[in-house]
Write a protein that binds this DNA or RNA. Structure first.
Lengths: 201, 201
DNA sequence: AGCTATCTCTTACAGGTTGTCAAGGTTGCG
DNA sequence: CGCAACCTTGACAACCTGTAAGAGATAGCT
């Protein structure tokens, strides 16, 4: 038995032409939805230099397109996280690198600032929230074992809190209430304060 | 000069009947949009026991309805905040009360967990984010002056961070990854850690 | 009680968006 | 070259938002 009833459709052979269209569509969606999350399929298609029906030829629905976009973004994100070796650097340093990767990611994918644009299939389960937080959680857990971080708060919660804090900081920048530099500084300091310290009793 | 060119349309006399409809509509919108942010006007109207056109008779557009809903929610929120005297209690205690008011608010207005449902008129300026954070900022500023809180981070940022943290905690509950009790505890502890302490150098 | 302004309901319409379908032209690849 | 895969055009149904006019019901005032 090779692979009977699982989500592994044979990665069917595509023509070079088709893959070019798919890339153009995903790229257009990233840009257009980034600045206008409620843009129409027509807008996305036009930006990609393609007809609306061509978009539907590759993505069965708008939600499917967004999901694919998020999955591609998650893959990039993971690659960046793998490049910075979070598992060997000292925890505080690793945390700073994690945040750097996040800033890089948010700059490229501003869409992800408003996570609930069309009401995803299941509001919570996207590739990002399934795959990124565990990395950070592992990092924080390591820091708690080495004593660099306090252990009075569960690592899973801290991971989500840190990621959330970064999104809040990014929103401050988008709202024009802080410069990028200030936001990064505030975020790093707040994050260290949240994770570090000897506040347990 | 009494009031020439400002947003003060003479609060025109409404029939009791009309006000009842408006209340029913706002209430229905609160409930329906709370569990399904992309519900149609028809759905809201039906839940309110009213026709769709009646909704449009009172609210010129969907966005206007959402704005009115948020304004009503903000008024409630402010009333709750006024009831808990944040300006006299010791800062740590006052902060706990502020968070309590927040939980109460989020329980009643789950809509506000996904702030960017239809793409608000201006993404950032709603009554909530204009009026609630300053209260918290004042509280934090007081705590920083009395020495209860650390002063190395600006109060305005801490205010937004605390409110954001609470929304993250609420999202954890909504996602089934924590109980209400756990979330409240984690949120309070994290918040105190963010604000308090002697980490300045 | 009666009158009137206000409110609601019904019916209808225009415009936009999402999906779907079929026919025909074009391009990549063996 | 030839075929299958791909793109395009045009058309369609369904839904949602917003607007409009007229008939009927209701509240408030005299």
């Amino acid at each position: 038995m090779i692979d009977s009833s699982e989500a592994a459709p044979p990665p069917r052979r595509r023509r070079s032409d088709a893959r070019r269209s798919i890339d153009a569509i995903l790229n257009a969606a990233r840009v257009v939805l980034g600045e206008r999350p409620d843009a129409s399929m027509e807008d996305i298609a036009a930006t990609a230099g393609v007809t609306r029906q061509t978009v539907y030829a590759h993505f069965p629905s708008r939600d499917a397109l967004v999901v694919a976009l998020i999955e591609a973004a998650a893959a990039e994100y993971l690659a960046t996280l793998d490049a910075a070796d979070l598992d060997t650097a000292p925890p505080a340093e690793a945390l700073a690198r994690f945040l750097d990767a996040g800033w890089q990611f948010l700059r490229r994918h501003p869409l992800l600032l408003s996570p609930t644009a069309p009401g995803a299939p299941r509001p919570n389960s996207n590739a990002l929230s399934d795959v990124v937080p565990p990395r950070l959680e592992r990092l924080i857990l390591r820091g708690q074992r080495t004593g660099d971080f306090g252990a009075s708060l569960p690592a899973a919660w801290l991971a989500d809190a840190v990621i959330g804090l970064q999104q809040i900081a990014a929103a401050q920048v988008a709202a024009g209430r802080a410069t990028t530099h200030e936001a990064e500084k505030l975020c790093l300091e707040s994050t260290l304060r949240l994770c570090g310290g000897e506040t347990s009793r």
